[in-house]
Simulated scan of single mutants.
Amino acid sequence: MLGFRDPVADAIGLLRPRTVIGPSLRAAGEWALRFDTFPHVRIGGLVHGTCWLVLEGHEPVLLRAGDTFMLGNPPPYVLASTPDAHPRPAEQVWAGAEDGFVRIGPESEEDLYLCVGHIAFDDRNASLLTDLLPPLVTVRVADPQGRRLAQLIDLLATEVGAAAPGGPLVQNHLAQILLVHMLRAHAGQTDRPTGWLGALNEDGIGAALRAVHADVAHSWNLKELAEISHMSRSAFAQAFKSHVGVPPLEYLIQWRMSLARDALTRNTLSISELARATGYLSESAFSTAFRRVVGSSPAQFRTQARQQPHATANKS
């Protein structure tokens, strides 16, 4: 049986995140670093000090100690001591990292400590998350989730600097915990549709989503899902689309196809087994749905996945 219980855990599991943390930045004086565009997500936060984040097409943002940020598939951006400082390529500076740190200016005068990480996903399902994210999410230390996020950044920075046994494993888990908390904070900050992420905060819609994820093979219909949500069919359909961005049964199809892509990539089930596991009565019905969503037949997709077994993101 495919499917689990929690939509966030399900989605992140399908994304197969690969985390690269650090090096951390310690800086003094005037400085500015320009980062090229990169896929998926970058997360970071200030352990102490202040700096400006300048993202193309956005007003400069002043970050203070304890603030955290998340960038989703962003355009090029700059981190700087002042908004008008002339930036140099970050890649060149990062190449000189030692002991988990990049240093700018005299060590004795350091007034900034910034911890950053990059989370890349399997390209085949990356849109499950990246389509929901704006280019920039900022969480202030005084925000409802801010203190917890600041503590996670502090722990992450400590691990980067410690070079202790098991460090990369701890960093990877901390980064994924940080990602989940950032997603929660983002969902709580906006009244715009944020897909399944924001809908989980709604009691009725969230209950329906959890039911779908718990038993993706069930022949769900609008009436059943509305009853789980304790709403009429029309009210449920309208609320679901308002929060998630697509109608309930379209969401179900999209989620089933995400699971199917993952299973075909890993070659864990035959196509007929996969059809039954995703709620289709026949292989032909499953193949028709798969082709409509993905653009190729399941067999073609599996062949292509075997030729490219590891969909990897570009380096940041």
Rank of each mutant, 00 (worst) to 15 (best):
E202M: 12
G117A: 12
R5L: 12
L281Y: 09
K315W: 08
V170S: 02
D99Q: 15
H213Y: 14
G206T: 00
R302M: 14
P83L: 01
L112K: 05
R302Y: 07
L133H: 01
H310K: 14
L33T: 03
E91D: 15
T68V: 11
I271A: 06
N267E: 07
V54T: 07
G66V: 06
V47A: 10
R192N: 08
F35G: 01
G66K: 02
T50Q: 09
R148P: 01
Q145T: 11
G161Q: 10
L156D: 04
Q176V: 15
A142N: 14
R233A: 07
F286L: 11
R256L: 06
E159W: 01
R147H: 05
G72F: 00
I21S: 10
Q238Y: 09
L209H: 02
P135A: 04
P83I: 01
T68G: 05
F4N: 08
D131L: 15
L129E: 08
T288Y: 06
D6F: 03
W31M: 01
L281V: 11
C51I: 09
V141H: 13
A313V: 04
V116N: 09
F121G: 12
H181F: 05
S81N: 02
R261E: 06
D10F: 13
D191R: 14
E107S: 15
L15C: 02
L136S: 05
P39T: 00
D131S: 13
T194M: 10
Y113V: 11
L71I: 00
G146A: 02
V293Q: 09
G105C: 00
A9Y: 06
R306F: 09
Q151I: 07
L179R: 11
T138Y: 02
F121A: 09
F290T: 04
G44L: 04
E109M: 11
